[in-house]
């Protein structure tokens, strides 16, 4: 397994948010974590990254225990993060946002080459390298957030609701991008509200509710299971 979560518990202050979450992602898989608002999806990703530190359980990445590592060390091991709200850094150009991601990665000496390479994926960014990142449109900022994760050439990308607030055409584009990234050898752990899209491009899925994994299995089977949809995913 590339990434394994064993029975992790995470608190925000006194609230017990993740209650024994276990989850596995194998190399070269696309795995989706679905669940309604407040189910604990983002917290799961933040726990993996050490942003929301776990209080018990274990997280393993490529056979090393990363549970107690600080965020920056976890990222440096080859995990890239595309956060929920994109988090493009204000005051920095598109290029500087990408450059920042490269700084501590294994590709730090190949800045030009790597920026060129992601510009191939995202032609819209190519002409805007000198523009301030936060002046891009919502869709373009999402592309930049994905590009920023991709420049480091990660083993796995944790992507949190990439299609949130985007129009249908862009949702499709994002889905295609994720598939292309995957076909180039990157493993993906995806969090999505857009079940149709997410489950149709995933191999497997986990359903989380109230901080617990309720069920998991083949992505298509979960997509077609009305009982699951009713019980855990209906708003």
């Amino acid at each position: 397994m590339l990434l394994t979560l064993e029975n992790i518990n995470t608190y925000y202050g006194l609230s017990h948010i993740l209650q024994g979450v276990s989850l596995e992602v194998d190399s070269r898989e696309i795995v989706t974590l679905v669940g309604r608002n407040g189910a604990g999806k983002t917290t799961t990703l933040k726990s993996i990254l050490g942003i929301a530190p776990i209080s018990s359980g274990r997280i393993r990445f490529q056979d090393t225990d990363i549970s107690a590592l600080p965020t920056h060390s976890i990222i440096q091991k080859g995990i890239a993060y595309v956060p929920e709200d994109r988090r493009i850094i204000p005051g920095l150009t598109v290029r500087e946002n990408l450059k920042l991601a490269l700084m501590k990665s294994k590709n730090r000496d190949r800045e030009e080459e790597m920026i060129d390479r992601v510009a191939q994926y995202f032609p819209i960014l190519k002409d805007r390298l000198k523009q301030e990142g936060t002046s891009l449109s919502g869709g373009e900022q999402q592309m930049l957030a994905i590009a920023r994760a991709l420049v480091t050439d990660p083993e796995i990308m944790l992507i949190d609701e990439p299609t949130e607030g985007l129009m249908p055409l862009l949702v499709e584009t994002i889905a295609e991008i994720i598939q292309t990234i995957h076909s180039n050898g990157v493993t993906v752990l995806l969090v999505e509200q857009n079940m149709e899209m997410a489950l149709s491009i995933s191999h497997r899925a986990y359903v989380i509710d109230e901080g617990r994994i309720q069920t998991s299995g083949d992505a298509r089977a979960i997509l077609n299971d009305e009982e699951i949809a009713c019980k855990y995913l209906a708003v």
């Binding site: 942003i51 600080p70 965020t71 920056h72 850094i89 920095l92 991601a101 501590k104």
Partner: peptide, 25 residues
């Protein structure tokens, strides 16, 4: 300088800078 870029970015969103692999400490 690169360090300057990190500092500039860190004043705006230090959590995201950490999540890009940089030791803000």
């Amino acid at each position: 300088t690169n360090l300057g870029l990190i500092i500039k970015a860190g004043t705006r969103d230090s959590l995201m800078v950490k999540a890009l692999g940089i030791d803000m400490g």
